[in-house]
Design a protein around this nucleic acid. Structure first.
Lengths: 341, 341
DNA sequence: CTGTTAGCGCTTTCAT
DNA sequence: ATGAAAGCGCTAACAG
């Protein structure tokens, strides 16, 4: 393995100017096809790799996307949807020859500046996944001069687009399905306190249930998307004078936890109570019972996010629109028509 | 929000030379305490942020760690352990003021060079998570001049350390537990074909079972860590003349899939057959039945990996040792003593 | 079509 | 303790 060679040395070897090397390797025009070929061969031969740092310094472009995920206190990333997006984004980015730098953010850690992080890394654009409500950095983000896409988070800023599941529709099809199969006493498990989607789902749940004149406040339970928090709701459910006949959760994992908790209390799902999940994780098709759930189209969410970001970066287009991806009801075994007796 | 200011401008404002600014902000000596203070205040006031790209160009240090995860064909990252490590590494890295750039790698995509990726990004060190067996880039990695840590992958290279779960011990405690509760007919679900840990687990399973004179080849099934692949084994199990009384899987998820598949065939876990998982994912404590499993200490694995990498980067120490983290048996509900009749 | 030259914003000798 | 100047490796504007 030979030593690293730089553009200057390669230029000397090729007997041309540095700029010619640069032109050849960056496929610019104003250079003959022959020299281009010749130089490329030479570059190959000598294992020349342009120094990306130097390149960046002059072009002021980093070919880097910053992805910010929220490190919530009690929720493992395992239990969040963030990495689903990261995976999809990573794949798309690779095709375009961009790199992904991953930042995790403690929501209430003051002092750190997201913008600063972006600037330091000279990212060309950023994606914020699932940010919360209370955020001292909100103002800062709003004034970002860098293209930004938010997933699961509705922030209006200078140069941003927003991609989210259509949470209203999600809640609507969930509730209407439950009603259709005979349920009227429908409970709800909230998501993490300062998550915006959690807030939204709660809001819509109440709104729609109120419309149907079915809303009962005592059927609404705190939870935080996590398995454990779902598990813990089971005990609270038992304290009720009368249990709901169905429960709509804010995440598959909390649904799975809840089902487990219920089982431990000798309450069978779906015979004693119906449970409806939210997410459509793969595993929910393999649980016992299989989970009926509202499936989010993570793939679309992710693809849209990154494509829009590229669009903003490359074409300086600011869509400013909110893209809502429709969710889908997947009926499986954890819900059951209510027997009227 | 004022415009970005650079060192030159700040120098002019402060009425000093650039080098003085540099010294002050990088806490070098050869500068009076007063000017240092004065300049820092000024920097603060004018919102001066050094351009990290320029800094890198001259220092040749990037404060970046590259993390390579394997994008396997059929397995979602959701189902791999990779992101568990990413999460842990990310947290540690943040403390040290490093950044993480994430690469996903298609194992059999020729032409891309990991080293190249590292060089382009000028990463100070790299972590490879769970790489496979067949790898055209293996030779290249072996000659890396950059500190490298492998997780779940045993590659000997110039400057590398290896962190892995003690898979031999894992298989041993799993098998011995199963035997202790009366099982002799013990099956095994392999992991992904070209994963090294999968190979290792298979190897040790066979080795240990042979020692005990209990090995039966027909009880060994192809699988790939995924839920679905576990599910599919159920049908194959039924084709057997005589089923094993217990099955050791290579992952929690495949165990969960298998249990589901068995259930669909009217076979009850653990009454008809015992299933032993491998991983210790959180969810396995909430499945029905709760999964008995061999728990990997992901946290230790991750922490060790990043700490060793930092050590190699900062102190130029090459440990070259293989660190094996002990696994732990967690007994829950999916296994049961074999009733002798 | 190609070479020359001037920076990008920083750190780091080498003087003073 | 501070300043001046060189240079990291590249691209881009300007000549020719």
């Amino acid at each position: 393995m030979s030593k690293k060679i730089n553009i200057k040395e390669l230029a000397k070897i090729a007997g041309v100017a540095q700029s010619t090397i640069s032109r050849a390797l960056n496929d610019k025009d104003g250079i003959s096809i022959e020299t281009k070929e010749r130089i490329r061969k030479l570059a190959q031969e000598y294992g020349y790799k342009p120094n990306i740092t130097a390149k960046r310094l002059v072009t002021k472009k980093s070919n880097t996307i910053g992805v910010f995920i929220l490190a919530r206190e009690k929720i493992d990333l395992e239990e969040s949807t963030a990495f689903k997006y990261v995976e999809i984004i990573l794949n798309e980015i690779k095709k375009k020859d961009y790199d992904l730098v991953l930042f995790s953010v403690d929501e209430d850690k003051p002092g750190v500046s997201y913008l600063r992080m972006c600037e330091e890394r000279a990212v060309d654009g950023a994606i914020f996944i699932g940010f919360g409500e209370v955020d001292e950095h909100l103002e800062e983000i709003k004034n970002f001069e860098i293209p930004v896409v938010f997933i699961e988070r509705n922030i209006k800023s200078k140069l941003s687009s927003i991609i989210t599941t259509d949470n209203r529709k999600a809640m609507k099809i969930g509730i209407e399905y439950l009603i259709r199969i005979g349920h009227k006493e429908i409970g709800f498990l909230k998501g993490t306190k300062n998550s915006e989607v959690a807030k939204l789902r709660e809001l819509y749940f109440k709104e729609i249930m109120k419309e149907k004149e079915l809303l009962k406040e005592e059927y609404i339970f705190d939870s935080d998307f996590s398995i454990e928090s779902g598990y813990n709701v089971a005990a609270k459910l038992l304290e009720l004078d009368k249990m709901p006949t169905a429960i709509f959760t804010s995440s598959d994992l909390s649904a799975i936890g809840l089902i487990r908790g219920l089982k431990d209390c000798q309450i069978d799902v779906p015979n004693d109570i119906s449970i409806l999940g939210f997410d459509g994780f793969k595993i929910s098709n393999f649980t016992i019972p299989r989970l009926t759930t509202i499936e989010q189209d993570f793939y679309s969410l992710g693809i849209n996010a990154i494509n829009i970001l590229f669009d903003m970066i490359e074409n300086k287009i600011v869509s400013k629109e909110i893209i809502k991806i429709p969710p889908k009801l997947i009926i499986r075994e954890s819900t059951k028509p209510l027997l009227t007796d």
